[in-house]
């Protein structure tokens, strides 16, 4: 499979169909491949694809220095494909400026790719899929107990913003957390600011989070961020029947409305 991928990338680079290819190379950490930007056909033997290829690559499509190189090729797992579809939907990239080699893992792939390669990898990434149970368990508790749970979790936050940096859909040039006039989100690692930051970060991804789980993996203090994200993901799915990352031609659910939206909670 990797030979096929290398062969295709080589052809693409040689034919000048793309000027840079975003893929993975072996990193210092044996469990985590490192992203690599390949610009020359001679570098093909660096390229790998296996179960350690977890880091989301789609974020690199937006980097100005990568953008400047010209048309980009990318190897895209299921989550990456959904992220790319989300970025196209939000007009951050156009379909034409990327060449997407999708990695088939047997899941329903978004229709936005140029070719598929079957890797033999069984799953996309070793994602956690147990959030739904935990969410249901939490919802059965009283608000006070839930608050207690989140207080303990969020007190750990050190405001490193790793969750934001790694998120494929967090691309604002100026994040609300960086704005200080007025300072909506307090910067000190105190529960007040931690609460506002983590809630608002998740909320800004409502209907946009593609459920890749990278924020939770990147979190150095292991806050179960995906519980918040997944709760919102399910909420959007129930309320608006919408799942991000499959169709770039519909407006994001919170950027549009329907006159008949439910309003049983409004006095």
């Amino acid at each position: 499979m990797i030979d096929k991928l290398r062969q295709r990338v080589k052809e693409l680079l040689e034919s000048k169909a793309i000027s840079v290819f975003i893929g993975y190379e072996k990193g210092d950490n044996p469990q985590l491949a490192r992203p690599i930007m390949i610009t020359s056909p001679d570098e093909m033997d660096k390229l790998i694809y296996d179960d350690t290829c977890i880091v989301m690559l789609s974020k690199y499509l937006l980097k100005p220095e990568v953008k400047a190189l010209g048309r980009r090729g990318i190897v895209a797992s299921y989550s990456n494909l959904r992220a790319i579809t989300g970025l196209i939907q939000e007009h951050q990239i156009t379909r034409e400026e990327v060449y997407i080699i999708a990695i088939s893992t047997g899941e329903r792939l978004p229709e936005y790719y140029d070719e598929v390669i079957d890797t033999g990898c069984k799953t996309d990434n070793p994602r956690l899929t147990t959030q739904d149970e935990t969410i249901a368990k939490l919802l059965k508790k009283s608000p006070a107990e839930r608050w207690d749970f989140w207080r303990k979790e969020l007190e750990k936050c050190i405001k490193c913003y790793a969750c934001r940096q790694i998120c494929p859909l967090c691309y604002c040039n100026r994040c609300i957390a960086d704005k200080n006039q007025p300072q909506w989100i307090l910067t000190s690692p105190h529960l007040k600011g931690n609460f506002a930051w983590n809630v608002i970060r998740a909320y800004h991804l409502a209907g946009r989070c593609i459920d890749c789980g990278e924020c939770e993996r990147a979190c150095p203090v292991n806050i179960p961020l995906m519980l918040l994200n997944k709760m919102l993901y399910n909420n959007i799915k129930t309320n608006f029947g919408y799942e991000v990352g499959f169709n770039p031609n519909v407006p994001p659910p919170l950027a549009t409305y329907h006159p008949e939206d439910k309003e049983n909670f409004i006095i």
């Binding site: 969410i135 939490l138 608000p143 839930r146 998740a202 919102l232 909420n235 909670f265």
Partner: peptide
């Protein structure tokens, strides 16, 4: 609000 109030409820407000 529809989404946000559910979220606040989920975090325990």
């Amino acid at each position: 609000w529809m989404v946000f109030k559910d979220m606040l409820e989920f975090v325990g407000i």
